[in-house]
């Protein structure tokens, strides 16, 4: 009996060492309305659409994790009642995204500020969350042209006030990006004066097989304009030479000869022995006395 108890204790200890340290079961969320971490961003896209994006996360023991399937209400603020733009549920990454057309913008104050809100009204599980964004409507344009043999991107930037008139943006940084494989890569910048600026396109930027480069002119995280972007594709890139004649390398389609030979020799040697063994087993069967 004593031995049994000792054995059980030893087994439990062993199981604890094996499983306890590296393993931990996934935990459920805490009870009651939990506090949400709510971020609301504005982005004016190249196609003129306004992107409203709410990112909803919550803090757990494992850090910040996205909250899925929460209905987020988006509105446009006016001098009267807010205009409802729509309701979007957060996705797997906790993101609710709404694209707003220019004709849906019905109000700008005298300074040109447009107001948007995003909010979640709250339920038993989650506390309410709400954010507002006020931005000026920036109209960016870009023209790619060669001026005196210099590849130049001409940028204009104007914002609209409440009276509907366009006013130039003055003394403001502007950035030129190139689309990379995974993200955008900044390749040059400029300084807006009276709503205009010329940015020189750097030489030696690699393009695709036809030399095309997707260029973006952006204003990022600006306190007045938020995020605004325009893009254009130009054939100013260097055409990369992908054609290389390589053979017998690890990354080529066909394996190096030595590797193929070695593999064949090894496999032939091993499987040859197996075949030999099976033939011997067959002979053992044959040489046994009948009956």
């Amino acid at each position: 009996m004593k031995t049994n108890t000792r054995n059980i204790l030893a087994f439990a200890l062993l199981a604890g060492i094996l499983c306890g340290a590296p393993l931990r079961a996934q935990e459920e969320g805490a009870e009651g309305p939990a506090v949400l971490d709510f971020a609301f961003k504005y982005f004016k896209r190249s196609n003129g659409l306004y992107e409203l994006k709410a990112v909803v996360t919550t803090e757990t023991e494992d850090g910040y994790v996205p909250v899925r399937d929460l209905p987020i209400d988006f509105t446009h603020l006016t001098d009267a009642d807010p205009v409802v733009l729509g309701q979007v549920k957060t996705d797997y990454d906790g993101v609710a995204l709404l694209m707003v057309k220019p004709e849906d913008i019905v109000y700008r104050d005298t300074g040109g500020l447009m107001g948007f809100t995003a909010g979640f009204e709250g339920n038993e599980a989650w506390d309410m969350a709400y954010e507002e964004v006020y931005v000026k409507d920036l109209r960016l344009t870009m023209t790619a042209e060669v001026v005196d043999s210099v590849k130049t991107v001409h940028v204009t930037a104007h914002y609209i006030k409440g009276d509907g008139q366009e006013y130039p943006v003055n003394e403001q940084d502007i950035f030129l990006f190139k689309q990379g494989m995974l993200s955008k890569l900044q390749i040059a910048d400029g300084w807006l004066v009276e709503g205009e600026c010329d940015i020189e396109f750097p030489e030696g930027i690699p393009g695709d097989k036809d030399g095309n480069v997707a260029l973006f002119v952006s204003v990022l995280e600006h306190p007045d304009f938020g995020n605004v972007e325009v893009s254009e594709t130009v054939a100013w890139g260097v055409i990369p030479n992908y054609v290389t004649e390589e053979s017998g390398l690890l990354w080529t389609t066909v394996a190096p000869t030595w590797m193929i030979v070695l593999l064949i020799v090894l496999l032939a040697g091993v499987w040859g022995h197996y075949v030999y063994a099976m033939i011997q087993m067959r002979k053992i069967k044959k040489t046994g006395p009948k009956g």
Partner: peptide, 17 residues
């Protein structure tokens, strides 16, 4: 068992293989 009857020949062959 492959008709193995432990004859000297079978035993020798099996041992070697």
């Amino acid at each position: 068992a492959l008709n193995y009857q432990d004859t000297p020949e079978q035993r020798k062959r099996l041992k070697f293989t």
